[in-house]
Amino acid sequence: MAKSWKEWEKPILELEEGIDKLEQLIAVERDVEKKASLALRAQEYREKLHKFIDVRYSRLGPWEKVLVARAETRPYTLDIINAVFDEFVELDGDRRIGTDHAVVAGPASLEGRPVMVVGQQKGRNIQERGYRNFAMAKPEGYRKAIRMFEMAERFRMPVVTIVDTPAADPGVESESRGISEAIAASMLSMFSLTVPIVSVIIGEGGSGGAIGIAAANRVLMLEHSVYSVIPPEGCAAILWRDPAKGPQAAAALKLTAQSAHELGLVEEVIPEPFGGAHRDPGETADRIKEAMLRHLAEVAMSSPEAIKQARYDRFRILGRFSGQ
């Protein structure tokens, strides 16, 4: 079982490098026949590559999706925000004790209409990861989110949340400042709003850390994103006392976007561009934007009270049991 998504990206990259080299040869080749034969080979390689990527990414298993969802080349929240919104003014601080760079938030313009955005931000290198705390929000992050939700309600702005977190911060300081209360209060705040809320899970939807900002009217997931009650490694450690059985746990937990959709827990799975979101972040953002606009418009057709009630009803029916 793969330990990293790079295991299957490596042959892809090698093939791409091979094609690049062929192209260079073609450019300098003067013999017409040789040039044509090289071009033919390059074309064969491109077709082979296309087929390989297609097969690989259309057949990702649950564990492979976990690896892709965590990939550091995937578009992160600020990449999506910058591409989707015409304008974004980041606001900060929980007005209590501090700030939290794992959460980015503020008003934005979506096709000229004001919306409030709250999202979780990962980092790409060691410095950024430290600064963003691996996108693990602390109580301050959820309380900053609550500030934004309340402002959105006052100023009648629809809310968009972008979910990408392994989990909420489990540290001692987060415990002492009430991480559990902060998550619950954030959900409670979302359930009190009468403006539309749409959440998009773009990578990792990590348990309480994710649902804390995903109590929305509509929840959308990117094709290769995951949403889980517990990280698969943690589940394996508890069930089988072996974190290395993450792949088995990933399968058992049914944590893929496709499973979540089949279970009726998300409204839409947004297809990723050919070969995954990391191959074309711009196209990924366009698709997210299209879905976001469509769902916001649908939700906004109802009256404010009906929008709040619809959110309640959406979650009220979730759960599988027999009997009345």
Partner: peptide, 14 residues
Amino acid sequence: EGLLSLMQMAKTTA
């Protein structure tokens, strides 16, 4: 119960 359990967090909070 996987994600269905996670959804109970939101449902009860609502």
